[in-house]
Amino acid sequence: MQRQGSIGGSAAIRVRVTGGVLLVAHLAFVAWLMLRPLDVPWVMPANLRPFATIRADLALGGHEAVRRLGEGLGLLAPLGVLLPLAHGRPCVSTFASLVRTVAAGAMVSLGIALLQTGVPGRVVDVDTLLLNTLGVALVHLAAVPALRSRLRRRAERLGGSAVRQEDAAQGRTPTIPRVGIAPWSDALPPSSP
């Protein structure tokens, strides 16, 4: 039996497995990149004030500001596509999918930030959390609705005939006429005197 809103059979499995493998590979790369110790002579203090680092990066201007902000936006941005791909359901509310994906991206970013507190040369920066989460949201909004509609059209085109054939092989679902409720006197067993 097919789950509500899922892609048909083997296609669903392929999409989920591909999404899961790519998701694990990306998270392993991010962990390797962000949790390596840095050999630096001094370390900036942790930034817990929102937008302080973003303002400082924008003050640099030009290419350096774009590079630094782009790094923050791009680090976890693939999660915006990989998380829904690993989930593998094309018939999901766009808003609910966005909320789940952004929340998961924020939790991954927060987890990385917390793990960085124990890595030499790394410091916590709340702006990195904000940029990472914004990157996940932007990629999700840009790609996932279009991908889902494409998958739905493909499933309807390919899966419609397969579902009809499956229903024909199993036979029609029997229908039961409405049953009335018996009065208590008819429903209770006869009492013995």
Score class of each variant (00 low, 15 high):
101 T>Y: 05
101 T>D: 00
115 L>D: 04
58 L>E: 04
109 S>T: 02
92 V>T: 13
62 G>M: 05
133 T>M: 09
63 H>T: 15
59 A>D: 11
156 E>V: 14
172 R>K: 10
78 P>S: 08
167 D>E: 15
123 V>G: 10
16 R>S: 05
46 A>K: 07
150 R>I: 10
101 T>L: 07
177 P>G: 08
46 A>M: 04
42 W>R: 11
148 R>G: 01
23 L>C: 02
88 G>M: 00
157 R>I: 03
74 G>E: 07
139 V>D: 03
88 G>C: 04
35 L>G: 01
101 T>R: 08
106 A>P: 07
171 G>N: 06
122 R>N: 03
55 R>G: 11
18 T>R: 09
177 P>S: 08
101 T>N: 06
167 D>V: 12
157 R>Y: 09
139 V>Q: 03
143 A>S: 12
30 V>W: 00
112 I>V: 15
126 V>S: 04
152 R>C: 07
175 T>Y: 13
52 A>I: 04
113 A>I: 12
97 S>I: 06
155 A>T: 13
173 T>W: 15
191 S>H: 08
41 P>Y: 06
120 P>H: 08
182 A>G: 06
161 S>T: 15
27 L>I: 05
53 T>A: 09
18 T>A: 14
90 P>G: 09
51 F>T: 09
77 A>I: 07
33 L>S: 14
90 P>Y: 07
57 D>K: 13
93 S>W: 08
134 L>R: 01
100 R>N: 08
38 L>I: 05
62 G>Y: 02
170 Q>T: 05
177 P>M: 01
94 T>N: 14
26 H>M: 13
175 T>D: 09
178 R>C: 03
161 S>I: 14
138 L>S: 03
140 H>R: 06
124 V>Q: 10
110 L>D: 01
127 D>G: 06
83 L>N: 00
118 G>C: 05
17 V>F: 03
64 E>P: 01
178 R>A: 12
180 G>C: 09
162 A>T: 14
174 P>Q: 04
66 V>L: 15
190 P>F: 01
122 R>Q: 02
103 A>G: 11
156 E>Q: 15
185 S>F: 04
9 G>E: 13
90 P>Q: 07
178 R>M: 09
91 C>I: 11
131 L>A: 02
176 I>A: 14
83 L>V: 11
78 P>R: 03
87 H>C: 10
178 R>L: 11
75 L>E: 12
185 S>R: 12
117 T>G: 15
185 S>A: 08
70 G>S: 07
182 A>D: 07
174 P>S: 02
138 L>E: 03
54 I>T: 07
114 L>N: 04
67 R>F: 12
66 V>I: 13
131 L>C: 05
147 L>P: 00
181 I>Y: 14
43 V>C: 05
